[in-house]
Design a protein around this nucleic acid. Structure first.
Lengths: 363, 363
DNA sequence: CGTTGTATTTCCAACGTTGTAGGAGCGACT
DNA sequence: AGTCGCTCCTACAACGTTGGAAATACAACG
């Protein structure tokens, strides 16, 4: 049977409340007493019962992370970053997979899953702008990703327009003029979600360079999985559209496209340059290694955890929702004609950086 | 303020205990009463407070999963499978990353992390056979992976020897005779850990085919990361050793090796055939797609969660520790001369199966 | 030497749930 | 009628912790 606070109190010769005070760093405890309690804790290998603490204090010290699927690299890396950030703040993370289904995501918001948590970080994939109303939930919620905007919650996201613009600019800078795009969504153009924001960034870069926009170069692919990247590239090649570069809206699409290009005998970057977006680890190890835009995932995780903890500890009227955009930068690799310092042994933080782009913060 | 059992009791006109009984499916509740309680629960949108339940019952309904790093694909896919398996059993999963450090892994066993959990699934990467004593912990613990054997806990693992043997046999079947290996560890050959077990499987297959063992073909690579696979392959090529096939001890090594082969202009599979082990999603999408041995990860996750829950609910003297080996099979793809049914669009469960190998179960 | 103020400690209740024990109602059997 | 056995329900205590208030100690002050 594990030791309780009462056991510690008995051994130290104090009341349970004094033990509690020591544990919670209450200042008015004599040093000698504190020391006695400390050594009793040590001697009994006492650990506070978190259920009891949670019951009494209303906080469990656990946050939830709801994502579509861990097996998608992007989310695995996001979860990795979130767990690290949470650990630094002494918070544990319950991971829930929605399976990328609408029902799964609605269940998260209904609070039927992830019950033991003080608040939830949520990265929706199926819910969109029309579902904003669902975000009005009775628990702290911080949104990740880029599918819903101007909702009632804090929101931490990459800079879609900016990232897409610098990706396109990168291709323009190396002299490409017929830049295809893979990953558009067949939705209403007013739609604010990321696919459209990225198309917007692409068009901004083209316009700034004085290059006409050609709809034949913009390819639909949804969801952003490898197979759809591969398929879109096959279509592009089959259609006989002329192009000398591709910007895929995420790295997974890019890896699929890269595979198709390889099979078709198209040389990368000589015939077609390619850049992705997300900068997942895998991008450094494809053949050729794939250029990408790093959307600031670690920063997103850190900021999101901070915001959530802030909300959890918030007293009184809630502050207005905030939207944070992360910094982003281009990681240039072989697929756009750059050479990794050590091919295949790139360091964890890729040093092959072309440019840093501080993003807008605040809401 | 969220509704409590007392609120429900008041609305339904019964005692709190009756509400509790309804929730816990206690049989002796009149249908009419049950119905009244149910609709009160519905009306108030009541959810049991899990901290209180945990305090009273001693169980939190949460299990811990301690792995090195989510950003390693293998562990992301393992975590994915574990979370799915746990969800089916109404259990939530707290994920902890040890960072692949010895200290992190020792902390897990010391019980300093993952406190709110009823038990832990642990996949060690740094601890080895010498650390068996550390496994004698005062909470339910099920070991995943293949670094420690014959310990005091249940253990679910892939069949290292068998998987390595069929991988090698697969290369032999397609006519290769000079089969290199990447991923050996520079340890004592008695060492029981997976690298050596895989070497053993490799040698068994060679011996069965009457092919002499050539130490020059066995390459050290540790840890099993892409960069080390790439480096080992560079060494292999630089040394001028003749070989017509490679078996890498995991897929990540294989992808690194594949990259080096591509850069060096060596054709796969024409000049060198390649097979990995783990069958991570990524293997289906490399260029060329990579053959691998599927070690039965989903089965491992299911069985491990079952064993852990069984241990958590175990009363009285603990049953003796069990060791479970998962079934494994070869997934043949382009890197060994097979063609995916739909290149780049392989289905989730790869249909390109050569052979199934039911493994030994039991302890 | 009592008074005041501040430092330190203790006491008590409460958080929301479930285990235990027991009571009420009712039909069946002696 | 009394007893038994079953169904259904309730009262109470307890799980281990912390908030709040109250009690005690101790120093400084008048």
């Amino acid at each position: 049977m594990a030791a309780t606070m009462h056991d510690v109190a008995r051994v130290a010769g104090v009341s349970v409340k004094t033990v509690s005070n020591v544990i919670n760093d209450y200042p008015y405890v004599r040093d000698a007493t504190r020391e006695r309690v400390r050594s009793a804790i040590e001697a009994l290998d006492y650990r506070p019962n978190l259920s009891a603490r949670g019951l009494r204090s209303g906080k469990t010290g656990v946050i939830g992370l709801a994502i579509p699927e861990l097996r998608q690299n992007y989310f695995a890396e996001l979860a990795d970053a979130v767990i690290r950030a949470a650990e630094r703040r002494n918070v544990a993370v319950l991971v829930d997979q929605t399976g990328a289904t609408r029902e799964g995501e609605i269940e998260v918001l209904a609070g039927h899953r992830l019950r033991l948590t003080d608040g939830i970080l949520f990265s929706p994939e199926q819910l969109g702008q029309d579902d904003i109303a669902l975000l009005r939930v009775p628990f702290p919620l911080v949104l990740l990703g880029e599918r819903m905007f101007d909702g009632p919650t804090d929101h931490v996201t990459m800079h879609n327009v900016g990232s897409a613009r610098v990706a396109t600019e990168h291709l323009l800078e190396i002299g490409r003029r017929r830049i295809a795009v893979i990953g558009a969504h067949p939705t209403h153009p007013d739609d604010i979600r990321s696919a459209n924001l990225r198309v917007r960034g692409y068009r901004e870069a083209l316009a700034a360079a004085g290059i006409p926009y050609d709809p034949a170069l913009v390819r639909v692919a949804a969801p952003w999985h490898r197979e759809n990247g591969a398929a879109a590239m096959r279509d592009l090649l089959a259609d006989g559209v002329e192009f000398d570069a591709v910007f895929t809206f995420n790295d997974t699409l890019g890896l699929g496209a890269l595979r198709t290009l390889g099979q078709a005998g198209v040389r990368v970057p000589e015939d077609v340059a390619l850049i992705g977006l997300d900068n997942i680890d895998e991008a450094r190890f494809s053949v050729p290694s794939m250029s990408s835009v790093d959307p600031g995932r670690d920063q997103i995780a850190e900021v999101a955890v901070d915001l959530l903890i802030e909300r959890i500890n918030e007293k009184g009227d809630p502050a207005p929702p905030r939207q944070i955009l992360a910094d982003f930068r281009v990681a240039a690799r072989e697929s756009t004609g750059f050479v990794d310092p050590e091919p295949g042994i790139a360091s964890a933080v890729s040093p092959s950086v072309l440019a840093e782009h501080p993003a807008v913060h605040g809401g």
